[in-house]
């Protein structure tokens, strides 16, 4: 029902208000004495060098790709779970086959070394 979303809307307003309130208030409460050392980046006492946004090796990028695949597969479980009682045994066998295919591809990915930390 659309009316179920009214409380969500109310929470949205209240939560935004709280967040904005806490973000704006220190502007007026706190002191403001900037200096170059203070506004520099923290680097454990050493002088900071370079920009942090450079190319960083992300070792788990294959896992990230596999994650997107699996996350989409998992989405198919939601409608099935809600209609679990309506789909009877037919739906259960169908989802078991689907899960089997998922496990099969999962084993393939594992054997290919996707979860290896390089």
């Amino acid at each position: 029902m659309p009316s179920d979303y009214v409380p969500i809307l109310i929470y949205l307003l209240v939560a935004t208000f709280i967040a904005a309130f806490a973000l704006v208030l220190p502007h007026y409460l706190g002191p403001r004495r900037p200096n170059p050392a203070k506004s520099d980046t923290i680097e454990s006492g050493k002088l900071s060098y370079g920009d942090a946004r450079r190319r960083v090796p992300v070792q788990y990028y294959i896992v990230a790709m596999v994650f997107i695949l699996f996350d989409i597969e998992v989405l198919f479980f939601y409608p099935w779970a809600v209609l679990f009682w309506d789909l009877k045994w037919y739906g259960l066998v169908q989802i078991a086959i689907f899960a089997f295919l998922l496990v099969e591809s999962y084993i393939y990915i594992w054997k290919k070394g996707a979860f290896k930390w390089k």
Binding site: P26, L29, G30, P31, R33, P34, K38, T41
Partner: peptide
Amino acid sequence: FTKEDITP
């Protein structure tokens, strides 16, 4: 709330 709010 009363601390200085620093933006790097």
